[in-house]
């Protein structure tokens, strides 16, 4: 990651960020496929250049204290890839990401680690992964989160018996326990039942207001209006709008790009 100096109040600076994946031209999922392809057309296999998927193209923006930024775009425009770059999961091909402070990013809510262990044991493990810094009182955090989840006696049941909704309750309760400097939420409101969604939305909104800045990925215009004070619209890996929420939503609607495509 390139080093870029940041100004005061800036939590995140993304500068000319490019992300390119080199993908095998023939996606061999097995050695057998690789072998048969090599026998059928050895020259093609030997001379083939890897396909280049240019996911993010010169993306630049900054987040300051109090920014609650929505990230909008049709499927496959690079929203999740951008968030993963910021979270440090992907290494950018070029450009830089500079983070000042503590970051927490959530991309899925219905996950567990050890299906044979109970809900409370999985909650402790998840807390280790979500809150890796040593200064958290994890026992207290887990106890508050499990109480909020209202899973009661199900906390002592093996995690493999949990429904998706129960898993989402536990995960959402954990991730919404403590604020941070930058919070990245990627379509996290899905999964939980209607009653719990109301309850968790209120808690996440509270956490969002306590956090330094938020990057919020959603396809729901109402959710974006409720949460965000700024909107970034992505199209084909480019930032096509960075500013006011309503004009960004109008641009997104006008572009008529509500067709799904995937890379």
């Amino acid at each position: 990651m390139k080093s870029i100096s940041t100004s005061e109040g800036e939590i995140l600076r993304v500068e000319r960020l490019n992300l390119v994946f080199q993908v095998m031209p023939h996606p061999f999922w097995s050695w057998r496929d690789a072998f048969t392809q090599a026998v059928r057309n050895p020259l093609e296999v030997l001379l083939a250049e890897p396909d280049r998927l240019h996911i993010l193209k010169d993306v630049s923006f900054t987040l300051r204290q109090g920014d609650r930024v929505g990230l909008l775009g049709v499927n496959g425009t690079g929203k999740t890839s951008l968030c993963r770059c910021i979270a440090g999961i992907y290494a950018p091909t070029s450009g830089g990401v500079v983070m000042n402070g503590r970051l927490r990013a959530i991309f899925d809510t219905a996950v567990g680690i050890q299906p044979e262990l109970t809900g409370i044991e999985n909650a402790r493990l998840l807390a280790e992964l979500i809150y890796p810094e040593s200064d958290y009182d994890r026992e207290r955090l887990v106890s508050e989160a499990t109480e909020f989840s209202e899973l009661g006696k199900f906390l002592d049941v093996p995690y493999r018996l949990y429904s998706n909704g129960m898993q989402a309750r536990l995960c959402l309760s954990l991730i919404s326990s403590r604020p941070c400097d930058l919070l990245i939420l990627d379509e996290v409101f899905d999964g939980a039942d209607a009653f719990f969604r109301e309850k968790i939305s209120a808690r996440i909104l509270k956490m969002i207001s306590a956090s330094g800045a938020v990057l919020f990925v959603s396809h729901g215009a109402d959710q974006i209006r409720r949460v965000c004070n700024r909107l970034i619209v992505l199209a084909d890996g480019h930032v096509v709008h960075d500013g006011d929420v309503e004009s960004g939503l109008a641009l997104y609607e006008r572009s008529g790009a509500r067709k799904d495509f995937s890379f």
Binding site: I113, Q114, E128, P132, S134
Partner: peptide
């Protein structure tokens, strides 16, 4: 590195616990 090893230890203990839990 300290976060890495703490997470490794937590997962190792969970693996040890879960492998033969029902036996």
């Amino acid at each position: 590195a300290s976060i890495f090893w703490r997470q490794v230890l937590a997962l190792t203990l969970a693996n040890l616990k879960s492998r033969y839990r029902k036996t």
